[in-house]
Design a protein around this nucleic acid. Sequence first.
RNA 1: GGCUCGUUGGUGAAAUGGUUAACACAUUGCCCUCUCAAGGCAACAUUCACGGGUUCAAAUCCCGUACGAGUCACCA
Length: 484
Amino acid sequence: MEKIRTRFAPSPTGYMHIGNLRTALYAYLIAKKHPDGSFILRIEDTDQQRLIEGATDIIFDTLKACGLNHDEGPDVGGDFGPYVQSERMKSGIYHKYAMELVEKGKAHICFCKEEDIQAQKEVAEARGESFIYIDPCKKLSKEEVEARIKAGEPYVIRQNIDPNGTTSFHDEVYGTISVDNSTLDEMILLKSDGYPTYNFANVIDDHLMAITDVVRGNEYLSSTPKYNLIYEAFGWDKPRYIHCPPVMKDEHHKLSKRNGDASFQDLVEKGYLPEAILNYIALLGWSPSEDREIYSLPELCQAFDVKRINTSGAIFDIEKLKWMNGVYLRDMPMDKYISLIKPYVSQSVKKDYPLTEIAAILKERANTLTEIPEMLDFLDELPDYDIDLFTNKKMKTTPEVAKKSLAAAKEVLSSLTAWNHDNIHDQLITLAQKMEIKNGMLLYPVRVALSGKAFTPGGAIELSLILGKDESLKRIDTALNKLG
RNA sequence: GGCUCGUUGGUGAAAUGGUUAACACAUUGCCCUCUCAAGGCAACAUUCACGGGUUCAAAUCCCGUACGAGUCACCA
């Protein structure tokens, strides 16, 4: 059976945005659905203008953080290297293949100036006509071309397209798409700086690297016929195409690198887990056949099916990601959870409170890691609060009730020798029973006294356990003083 | 403007010609409960952009319209 080979081919022009990551994910899943499938990373740095230093490292780091490990790539090597286009260029392959097309009559050398073409285009647009460039260089004689090259005139190599007929191709997601050749313009294959364009390098490298499935955004849908014409000119087998719908920021805009739209790095900084992010974005534009949403990466590999990729754009919903992140946090083993939250806890808790107990009250509550510091901000320092806090209609508490409850609680707690959860719990619950009041009338005031806040993670019992006997009694005293 | 693609609730979506259009997030209400969460239960599209057509039967097939997106670079 054919070995599946997919590739992720980003250009190193900045951070990794979510749509990009999802494309990488899908390419990975398609390869890894099969035991011998390969996922390849290729860096497309043919645009020397837009290169950004360090961008390649961001790509490496992101893939690694997500567990999207590539089998071949610039850092891990492989049999089809080099895996960076600027390095591939050194052997002259793009030029060689471009010249092969020229010889076959499928491309030609063009000396036209960019500005001239642009000017013609503007004239056509002003008239409201559609613009297809008819290149006069196509008619140049071989001798003249050679002479001008020899004279040092800059040139590009441009594709030849027969305007007659139609070109169609099959996409695994969108089905069969055909276009009239007369609407296709002849794209530049090799730029005047000697670098190939994305369009050309992509075809050459996908073929040379034996890529079987091309996964990319649907913005390439309308130019794919032109790529196929190149495959045909060489007589090469075409890959399967899997075009993915866009990930949108809102109804009208794609998620983009501009104006701080969610990048993977941003989300991690905001306290989201890579595995939750990956799980969430897998569901943007794809749905499993079973009624389930939580998938680990290996589970996704099994469940993924190209046939179930959607055709329309999906809006990125941070609320749902937040929920999913919470699921991952809650389902995590406790020891892993503790080491994960440690740096966030210490942001607001400098005193030596038991981390295990803190983790226990946080685990069911925090959806993102970054909300942790604020949830614990009352531990080190009791905030100043108003006695109105003791009034709660549902708990049937008032400052008067609180005063009685706190005095009674103080008494039983101060006599406690072994300060542990069960003891505190039993003492307070039996106290409430003795006083013949509902638990809330006793515990609510205690919780407020301990925290000075209307809402806290955990209740009175958990908080007193974390704060310890001395601090708890001290805070109850403070409350008693406030209440006069 | 030409070409290509898309349109199911606030969001992600299922359904692949045949009962009351799944499910999840969000929202609202109730239960549980010492607060907040978590958890449980319930409500939330007489309708699938709109208009025609085919059919005994259409969200599902066909045609048209509207709206949206992509593309038309020596960017990817």
